[in-house]
């Protein structure tokens, strides 16, 4: 019985559950989909036509106030705004920073979440419980406050530098560097990842771990062959959500990062507001959007693949 349960856990969201297609299921899935299609999908579609140079109809609004607006020269539009963005010297640096931060922070967040989750699952005790509760604290701290807290902690006159200067050590000013963005994004993403990973690890039956132990498997081996494979779905969801959240982050890089290069979230806002170039700003928004969809696709693809390999499809 236990093994059947874990099979289903491992199967996750990617695999088809029932052999036949369900009409009821389709209808049940409709309400949120329609809501999103109408209130997000429609504006996104309108914004897309604007990025291609359709400046009339619903896009008249932005065309009235924006600078450097390209109007379509073909029936399908123009790529001029896209060319503007790609040729902007800022873009390459921003894109690199965004992807690097997303990758590094997501990896570290997952490692930390696994560390805490495994500690709680395998060793447990009062300390582990206190720690898990403690790591949830950032969940309840609004991002802007978190950004300020981290800003002052690592700033030129912050705690780290004050503390180390007592021993004559010159601790570097982390605030306003790319590292500070990484620290901030990890700090804010940690609780969700820990929630997902811990709940995944907790749902693994004791019997499985005991069986492995009885068969002589060591600590590391149990983690590698039992814990991680069985909790892979929540781990991957945690990773996907974290990565997509970091990809579009705005407040953290604004407060903690350098002026240039910065993350695309900040640059989108700069282009929209300060430079008043809404068309180019929307093009960047689509680039973030495409990257996020890419991550979601990788997730689904990985799930389907693992389901196929284990012969369930």
């Amino acid at each position: 019985m236990t093994s059947t349960k874990t099979d289903v856990v491992a199967e996750g969201l990617g695999a088809a559950k029932a052999p036949r297609l369900s009409v009821v299921g389709f209808l049940m899935a409709l309400p949120p989909l329609l809501l999103v299609l109408f209130f997000v999908g429609l504006p996104v579609l309108i914004a897309f036509t604007f990025s291609l140079g359709f400046t009339t109809g619903p896009n008249r609004v932005l065309s009235m106030i924006g600078q450097e607006i390209h109007k379509k020269d073909q029936w399908w539009g123009t790529f001029s705004a896209y060319k503007d963005v790609i040729h902007d010297p800022r873009f390459a640096g921003d894109m690199r920073t965004t992807l690097a931060i997303t990758f590094i922070s997501t990896t570290l967040v997952l490692l930390m979440a696994l560390g805490i989750g495994i500690y709680q699952r395998m060793i447990g005790g009062r300390l582990a419980s206190v720690m898990t509760a403690l790591t949830l604290v950032p969940l309840f701290v609004p991002v802007v406050i978190a950004a300020w807290a981290i800003h002052t902690f690592y700033a030129g006159d912050g705690f780290m530098r004050s503390f180390f200067s007592q021993f004559g050590i010159e601790f570097p000013t982390v605030t306003s560097t790319v590292s500070a963005i990484a620290i901030g994004t990890i700090w804010t993403s940690l609780p969700f990842a820990i929630l997902m990973v811990t709940s995944g690890l907790q749902s693994i039956p004791d019997a499985l771990i005991e069986t492995a132990q009885d068969a002589g498997a060591g600590f590391i081996r149990i983690i590698r062959t039992v814990l991680i494979p069985l909790a892979i779905t929540p781990i991957v969801i945690a990773g996907t959500f974290t990565a997509i959240g970091i990809l579009g982050s705005f407040t953290i890089p604004l407060f903690l990062g350098p002026n240039q290069p910065t993350m695309l979230g900040v640059e989108i806002s700069n282009f929209f507001g300060a430079y008043n170039r809404p068309q180019q700003s929307i093009v960047m928004a689509f680039i973030v959007f495409a990257s996020a969809s890419g991550i979601a696709l990788i997730y689904i693809w990985a799930n389907v693949r693992s389901a196929k390999q284990s012969g369930r499809i």
Binding site: G14, S22, G25, F26, M28, L37, V44, A47, S281, F286
Partner: peptide
């Protein structure tokens, strides 16, 4: 439905919701 049933466009449904959520709002 997404967790237990199979229907047309199920994966598109999940990715679609995800993608919509990740679109930077300032452009909209």
């Amino acid at each position: 439905a997404a967790g237990r049933m199979n229907y047309v466009g199920r994966k598109t449904f999940l990715i679609g919701l995800f993608a919509a959520n990740s679109f930077p709002k300032i452009g909209l």
